[in-house]
Design a protein around this nucleic acid. Structure first.
Lengths: 347, 347
DNA sequence: TTGAAAGCGCTAACAG
DNA sequence: CTGTTAGCGCTTTCAA
């Protein structure tokens, strides 16, 4: 196994010093390099097939406190249960990851994807890997909050609703989305509208959609009825269960807003199992516009968020902040739109 | 911003040397540490909240050629077009990633997820990040082959059909799966069976499924008819198109084997658009058992591969190989099974 | 415009 | 059983 080529080898080949190689390759601002030297170095790099050692770069540049330049962005993903797998079953994450990875890579950053062990905090990963930035998906790091702030690593929260606004934040306007969905139903003449969702955690995404649901009700002067609220978990199976409950409940429900498409799709199936048709017997609107929403039958009317745009926004923020420590705190709300398909009918 | 705590700080706190701290934390085999010392060190670590610096570890341990111990596994994902985003739209990758990440993390490895820029090879990433292992998804690194072998980094190919067997390999038995699917159709009395797929690249996954299709035909002494083969791209839309072609073709087709569920699901929709019902008018069998297969209507009969098992297998191999350079080359074929739902009927 | 040299934090012989 | 001591490959003052 041949010795790895390092910058000294390149320097020798080019007849310059290792420092110069560094200057050239990093286009160091504080230093000017003559065209000739640059070309000699680049030629040597080419000839020897030199690839810099990131570990050494990271370590070498760690003298200035807090400026490690690992060129690594951490994408931290919550786990439902500690010690469990990532929540990547959410089909939405794939697209999101794809967009973030791509955008980050174009800027010279790599992406470290990690869940978090029960006995560890994100911060440890961030320290350990000298992360230049952290993306946290769907969880507010309340407890580690203080420590985070100390670390001073750019952090962007995705789909998090926290109380304080210390971090960068990218999210969809879930409350407005919930409002849009419910209003759509109301505009189609529905009055007894069920709200079906996973667990409503305080300040969570679901909670916001729930608030939006209530907003729309209030606006239309439809009294809020807790009996129309069905809470389980985010999953296809629960959709089926919820459909059964609604069908049996006899509460006069004519439409349902499912706070997640996957639930909505399950509900369609569930109703069908019970001999009820969507939208003839009951209208359903979802949230997310996952792939299945288009595919299922009938096509699911739902609220769409632009995942790619979200991923791009997240990447842009984290990269900018990683490169420039004076990058101002940014909060972006990704717009939402309604996608009309066939699952809602006029009463 | 407080100075980062390093092993020297811990050493001072514990009244030992930095080397000892290293020994304790890494449970270095070649060295024995007294219980007291260990406890002192651990206490100091706890007290100071010390987190080791991975960049320094990686660099420090790089003296022994090829043993970098970055504790980083690279997951390299192909891109359809160079400079494009990851193929993470494939819903299958999410689960796979989830399983790999989880298994790797349990063993103390992090996962670097990356596409590859057009001007770069995986090898550069591997060198640059001192990767302890590489997972390559769905692409055979034919060109870089030689260089890979030089690098000597454990590499596992996922769903790759290469000619030589230099790398570890985990894949499903696509050919057998194709056979299973087609045989299932034949057993249900079908004789005019269409094969619908994305591009059939040589030695690709699709190609294998196609061979399996032919195997089953041959076994049943059904002559192979090229007119029954429809090739496009892996996507829902293409399924719709293919359905149209089949419907118009008037070739007496009574069943179709779609080499990807997403195509199959599109076909169901496509046939429905044309007033044809599945399975009454035409039977369809898919491949993959993606989420939509269960959800769509009718439920799609398909070939299932156990994604989690695949992810676990991949992680196990790569971690073992990373830890132990004598780990033997391993090839695993993940078993396949048929999942019967409602899209195939008896003729 | 360049080079010499001192680290960055850790590991791994080698002593003791 | 533990400490000393070289590095690992790069960055970054500081001089020249």
């Amino acid at each position: 196994m041949s010795k790895r080529i390092n910058s000294k080898d390149v320097a020798r080949e080019a007849g310059v010093s290792a420092a110069t190689v560094s200057y050239v390759l990093n286009e160091t601002k504080s230093v000017t390099i003559s065209k000739e030297t640059r070309e000699k170095v680049l030629a040597a790099v080419q000839k020897l097939g030199y690839v810099p050692n990131q570990a050494a770069k990271t370590l070498g540049s760690s003298r200035i406190v807090g400026k490690s330049k690992s060129n690594l962005i951490g994408l931290v993903i919550p786990q439902t249960e500690s010690g469990k797998e990532l929540m990547f079953d959410n089909p939405f994450y794939g697209d999101f990851l794809s967009a973030v990875e791509y955008a980050a890579r174009q800027e010279g950053f790599h992406l470290l994807v990690s869940g978090v062990n029960a006995d560890q905090s994100y911060i440890d990963i961030a320290k350990n890997r000298s992360l230049d930035g952290i993306i946290i998906l769907g969880m507010y790091p309340s407890e580690d909050n203080k420590e985070y702030k100390q670390i001073g690593i750019p952090t962007v929260l995705v789909d998090c609703y926290g109380t304080d606004h210390f971090f960068h934040s990218v999210r969809t306007d879930d409350r407005y989305g919930g409002y849009l969905a419910t209003r759509h139903l109301i505009q189609h003449g529905h009055k007894r509208i069920a709200f079906v969702s996973g667990e409503v955690k305080e300040s969570g995404v679901t909670d916001m959609r729930f608030l939006g649901y209530q907003d729309a009700l209030r606006e239309a002067r439809i009294p809020y009825d807790p009996n129309l609220v069905f809470t389980g978990y985010v999953g296809y199976q629960y959709g089926i269960e919820a459909a059964a409950k609604i069908a049996q409940g006899n509460a006069g429900i004519t439409a349902a807003f499912a706070a997640a498409d996957i639930i909505a799709v399950g509900m369609i199936k569930g109703f069908r199992n019970l001999g009820l048709r969507v939208p003839e017997d009951i209208s359903i609107i979802g949230f997310d516009d996952i792939y299945q929403a288009e595919i299922c039958d009938p096509g699911l009317t739902t609220i769409r968020q632009n995942i790619k745009e979200k991923g791009n926004a997240v990447a842009k923020i984290i990269v900018s902040a990683a490169k420039n420590s004076t990058f101002p705190k940014t909060e972006i709300v990704i717009p939402l739109e309604i996608v009309e398909r066939e699952s809602v009918r006029n009463l």
